[in-house]
Simulated assay, not measured.
Amino acid sequence: MIDIHCHILPGIDDGSKHMSETLSMAQKAVEEGIDTIIATPHHKNGQYENIKSEIIEQVADVNLALADQGIALKVIPGQETRIFGEFIEEYESGKILTLADSQYVFVELPSGHVPRYTEQLLFDIQLKGLTPIIVHPERNSQFIEHPDLLYKFVKKGTLTQVTASSLCGYFGKKIKAFSQQLIESNLTHFIASDAHNVKNRTFKMAEAFDLIDSKYGPDMVYLFTENAELLVENSNVMREVPEPVKRKKFLGIF
């Protein structure tokens, strides 16, 4: 299993604080059946800046430590970049990193709103030959209140990634319900951990896929696990036809 979103690199954001914690996270990941992680430290979120070259160096150090400890996990470079106006310019200058050296790039939105220029930037990213992936849309309050906005983005080519812990209810019932709505409406394409540690923000990937299997069946599990593999291979991921979230049904589940 591949986890495409994880804060496993030590000491560079609000994830792992040091190499020993990184190794603990790696061991926990392996126990859950994860064999590959894309390390996605925060970038340009107002607190952290982690540019491409520094992330690649950190990933190399972590892989050496994993090999030294005999932990059967591979870490690949990635980045979680907060949306900002000069996104394209930073990509062109070599500071923004795609996931696993692929066409796919993470875009993080503020939790409380969707900036007005989001649609234009998502379009501009695609003009560069990249595919934007909005991370944890289920935790964005504007998407929760106005899911048609996310539907519009997905219909125009943007992908999304839901957090395993959200789906399992660790961020509350409302976010869990919305996560399920996104799956049911074909508005998400990846499930990932967004793990930050082994305590309160851990992987929950096995639990999430057990839930998906019981609620939606093995075909949905296959779609999400296969899409992670296709991303790492830089192949086109599977996309079902997106549907608007049924507003009446959506409101009725809270």
Rank of each mutant, 00 (worst) to 15 (best):
C6W: 02
G11E: 03
G11T: 02
I12W: 09
K17A: 12
M19W: 05
S24T: 13
Q27S: 13
A29C: 07
V30K: 00
E32W: 07
D35A: 13
A39N: 02
H43N: 14
H43M: 01
K44I: 05
N45F: 08
N45Y: 05
Q47Y: 15
N50V: 03
N50D: 03
E54S: 13
I55T: 00
E57H: 08
D61C: 13
L64W: 13
A65M: 00
L66H: 00
A72V: 03
L73Y: 03
L73P: 06
L73M: 00
I76V: 08
P77I: 10
G78E: 00
G78M: 04
E80C: 03
T81D: 04
R82F: 12
G85V: 13
E86G: 06
I88S: 08
E89V: 11
E90I: 07
K95T: 06
L97S: 03
L97V: 04
D101L: 10
D101P: 10
Q103P: 04
V105R: 07
V105N: 08
L109D: 10
S111R: 15
G112C: 12
Y117C: 09
Y117T: 01
Q120L: 15
D124W: 11
L127I: 14
V135T: 14
P137E: 00
S141P: 11
E145I: 11
L149V: 14
V154Q: 05
G157Q: 12
L159H: 03
T160R: 04
Q161V: 10
G172N: 01
Q180G: 12
L182A: 05
E184C: 07
E184T: 08
S185W: 05
L187N: 05
L187V: 07
T188L: 01
H189P: 00
A195D: 02
R201S: 08
E207G: 09
E207T: 11
A208C: 04
A208M: 10
A208S: 06
A208N: 02
K215N: 11
Y216A: 05
V221F: 06
F224D: 04
F224K: 02
A228L: 09
L230W: 02
E233W: 05
S235C: 14
S235L: 15
V237K: 08
V241H: 12
V245N: 07
K246E: 14
K246V: 06
K246G: 10
K246I: 12
K246Y: 11
R247L: 15
G252C: 10
